[in-house]
Design a binder for these strands. Structure first.
Lengths: 223, 223, 223, 223
DNA sequence: GATGAATGAGGATTCATTCAT
DNA sequence: TATGAATGAATCCTCATTCAT
């Protein structure tokens, strides 16, 4: 019978070690994640080999496995950190959007921020499109996906008509996320003016999609 | 190149015989493509192994390679057949849309047909999302992608305002395809009423996106 | 494909099974051997695939195996035919050499004939160098090799000093054959004037090698 | 990357310790090359499978590929090491030949040394005859071949008549190498007295071939 | 006899992961 | 902790050969 009581102490005797270790470990981990990000970007998750990641990080494969139990864990941790940063970015930058901003403006602001973030972290894109199906990767992917959904739902909840049932909100959030990803793919696939055009197109599409769902007492986005 | 037709160098006086052999091969090819479709569906293109496909088809790996030079060729042939069927389906079913149908109706009809087709051929979805990066697959995959783009552009050209510049049409087509894929993913991920709801959501989104782009002399989709 | 038989009518009644069959069979065999020769030349024996040979011959693999039990048998038959032709060529063309020709002349004549033959049948070279080791191929290869040895021993027996022990003759024949092959490789590897130079070099080398072994009562090859 | 050799207290007094990691690898490489040599000898380069080599070395296929990117690389490294050893052997053993040694003596010494080397390293023979056609192997193979040519040209340059044009020297070197290979094949194919006889025959042949090309101011090898 | 489909063991190579040091 | 060697199953693909028609 496995002990599930959780009483297994966390290394009672030694208080000091963890810190030191973690310090160095943190560096290694960051190093590895950075490498992983690079490799995921250029090869995609599936095609990325752990050996390649280790090599990119300048360490041996053994070292990599000292910090991550398997390839998936790397992607998960990467996603988590990205998520964390995204959350931070938003808590400080998204707040101002909330009030009674017109949809168009809110969407534009959100799209701008998201795309900015995606441009700063190209891996995000790779991770979003990773799970060709590998099944288990689901959790990871879902973490990222779910987190973004939550973000979006938050945004929507302040935009959509008050009476909107949660299911509809969720549905809309899914749609918005899907559209955003699709649009992002196009945005990233182009450059210069064409890229700009796609950004605008994406904003327009989302705005038009959301506009009718917004509380009617407000201001329609388009006059 | 699985084109095995007409390779009979002789072509003497007989008409029937030469086919027999090819019939078996033709059947095998169909069988293999079916198997490939199944495997692609459950594992995705990248993760699908040729041996797995052969096994699924109940033949030896060698047999598979008698008909297809490599994995990619399977996907290509599969795409081609799908494309072909899609074209057929459209030539007989899409025509009526053209005239002066209101956007809403046109979109609804198109989405219904596409989703029906996708439901009948789940591989389509797998193939559309195949190329995690593999690069070369690009052409093939693009064949499918490009074909759909063409379909969409055709539809759009009869819907969009006459003066719309080609670049804008192309952009819109890309957006529509991206949105469609995104929506389809959600549609296929749900069932029953929820699925229906997503279908509707997708139609709404596309309609709203396209409506303002449509010639104003017509009737706006929403009254 | 030059049809060299030409005499066989095409669609007669079928009275004489055995003849007919062999007639057609012979043609097929010749066809296959020709194809094999081509493929062996371009790919070498080991790398040549039976399927490639069949394809080159314009027949199906099955047909190939109707005439030859395996790949080796093809090489063997090819060697045999080459041998046969070589024998014929020599019986009519080598005879005049025999008498009391000075070594230099004899060698020159022999080299010229052999190289001519090799140029007319490039496979010979491929077959001579075939058996990377495959062991069993030994017999075949040896057939060709042994036959050439016999030829050479015949030539030598009329050149070498009468008292030369058989073992020495055999040894010399082996050496001569080895040198000839080595020289041929160089000859075939070059063109134009350089090729000529190598031919001359080969002649010189063989002449010098054999000269001291020749009966002293005769005339030294170099004056 | 900072010092990764792990100079921590472990390896103070010993000389071997610090190498340990690399030593193991070095040993594996040697082991693998040895195994490869054995397999190449018995099967020839083309027929030798990497799995067979790994098996012969008592390791898994993966291990082989940790040290060599592909089969060719094994042959190349093997050739290189052989070459290296050959060079060493020569720098200490071939030097004395140079002065004004008569051809006969020089050839005898060279043949003795080469054959001794070949007997000690039977692979050399296998590698020399490797490239049935594989094309790419050319470079590698050529490395060995070219190196031997260079050796021979060096020897020849001090033997041949001073005025001999470079092209002729090169041609002669090619011939000598070809003859040597051919002779070696016969030498290695026999044993005991017969082998000795072939060695002598080879020496004689080369001597006679080269003698007339040697500077006339010297002494002809045979008086 | 001819065809072309079928076989399946085998080949080179990769890669996530573990192990000894 | 870091290293790099080791693993071995799995991948794509080939080919001599056989079989059903």
């Amino acid at each position: 019978m496995p002990d599930t009581t959780g009483t297994t102490g966390k290394a009672q005797g030694k208080e000091e070690q963890p810190r030191r270790r973690q310090a160095r470990g943190e560096r290694r981990i960051a190093q590895l994640l950075e490498a992983a990000a690079a490799v995921f970007c250029t090869s995609g998750y599936t095609a990325a080999s752990t050996n390649a990641i280790a090599r990119e990080a300048g360490v041996s494969p053994g070292t990599l496995y000292q910090f991550f139990p398997n390839k998936e864990a790397i992607a998960i941790e990467l996603s988590d950190r990205l998520l964390h940063e995204m959350r931070e970015t938003y808590s400080e930058a998204l707040a101002p959007i909330a009030p009674g901003t017109p949809v168009e403006e809110a969407v534009a602001a959100a799209v701008d921020r998201f795309t900015a973030f995606n441009r700063r972290h190209p891996v995000l894109f790779a991770l979003m499109h990773s799970p060709e199906i590998p099944g288990r990767m689901a959790q990871d992917h879902d973490a990222l996906h779910a987190a973004m959904l939550v973000r979006i739902e938050e945004l929507l909840s302040s935009l959509l008509a008050p009476g909107t049932p949660p299911a509809a909100v969720a549905r809309t959030a899914h749609m918005v996320l899907g559209f955003y990803k699709a649009g992002l793919e196009l945005v990233l696939a182009h450059e210069g003016a064409e890229q700009e055009a796609y950004v605008q197109e994406l904003k327009d599409a989302l705005t038009r999609y959301l506009d009718p769902l917004v509380t009617s007492c407000g201001q329609p986005a388009h006059s």
